[in-house]
């Protein structure tokens, strides 16, 4: 029997000239950007004393009972904005995602229109939506809720549509063979199959909504962010530190709750 020679494969395959040029170009862009916008060691060193002074003025956080009561009301409002906005957004996302999902959409190839709509909602930052709603609806919590609704549709619309596209095809085919329409297939086969994914995305959306709703007040769209802006504008740094602490606790608690819910679902 003839002796065979076995060649050890190379650890790394060669880089094509095109890939090499692209890598060099990318490196150039990153280095140029760092030179323009990254903080220099000198700037960081200069900033430390100011930051230390600011932190000193923030301590101890304000624990005045009247102030805490006002914060509690604002936190409740923030939570309401997040909850109601996310809920309405999630409900509206379902039909929009159905229209956007490839191979499932009742619009056929028109699904691209629905997809583009969802992309548009996602592309515009939530603070810009908040500015638009404050300008059109007026200052306050309703503008904040509308912002969260739009933001949630942008987020859930995409993930719901992807889940629908990835849903098991066999049960859909089985219902289609029986004579079920598109709506029946959605309700009977697709939604039950993707339910864990829907709940998961919805919990992320709720978490995101809570985080977003705390900053919406900065542009006048209600919630605790409004108090934070006032505190900074009036140099009430002890109030600001208490608000930041409260926001941290709320967001952290929210994440713990949603993590536990997700773990139970999976």
């Amino acid at each position: 029997m003839a002796e065979r020679t076995i060649h050890m494969p190379k650890r790394f395959t060669g880089v094509s000239p095109l890939n090499f040029v692209l890598l060099v170009a990318l490196g150039g862009v990153i280095l140029t950007s760092m030179g323009k916008v990254a903080p220099s060691p000198q700037q960081l060193a200069d900033g430390v004393p100011d930051m230390t002074r600011l932190v000193g003025r923030m301590l101890p956080p304000n624990t005045d009972p009247d102030f805490l009561a006002r914060i509690a009301r604002r936190i409740l409002e923030t939570f309401q904005i997040a909850l109601v906005g996310a809920l309405i957004g999630i409900v509206l996302s379902l039909p929009i995602a159905w229209f956007a999902a490839r191979s499932v959409s009742p619009l056929g190839r028109g699904n691209l229109l629905a997809k583009a709509f969802v992309s548009f909602l996602r592309t515009v930052p939530d603070l810009v939506w908040a500015l638009l709603f404050v300008a059109s609806i007026g200052l306050g919590a309703v503008a904040g809720t509308m912002t969260i609704v739009v933001d949630t549709i942008g987020f859930c619309g995409r993930f719901f549509a992807e889940a629908m596209e990835d849903a098991e095809k066999e049960p859909q085919e089985a219902l289609s063979a029986i004579g079920a329409g598109r709506g029946s297939i959605l309700v009977g086969a697709i939604l039950p199959d993707i339910m864990p994914s829907l709940v998961n995305s919805s919990l992320f959306a709720l978490e995101k909504a809570v985080r977003s709703s705390v900053v919406l007040g900065l542009v006048g769209a209600g919630g605790i962010g409004q108090e934070l802006k006032v505190a900074f504008d009036l140099f009430q740094y002890r109030n600001a530190s208490m608000i930041i602490l409260t926001i941290f606790v709320i967001v952290f608690l929210m994440e713990v709750c949603t993590d536990k819910l997700r773990a139970r679902i999976q």
């Binding site: 066999e170 085919e173 089985a174 219902l175 029986i178 329409g181 029946s184 009977g188 086969a189």
Partner: peptide, 25 residues
């Protein structure tokens, strides 16, 4: 009635719900 090789049931629903799905349409 159509029976597929891979059952094609909706996994997360009850057996009875899957059978009643046969009345879709």
């Amino acid at each position: 009635g159509f029976v597929f090789q891979k059952h094609c049931l909706v996994r997360r629903r009850t057996v009875l719900s899957n059978v009643i799905h046969g009345l879709y349409g």
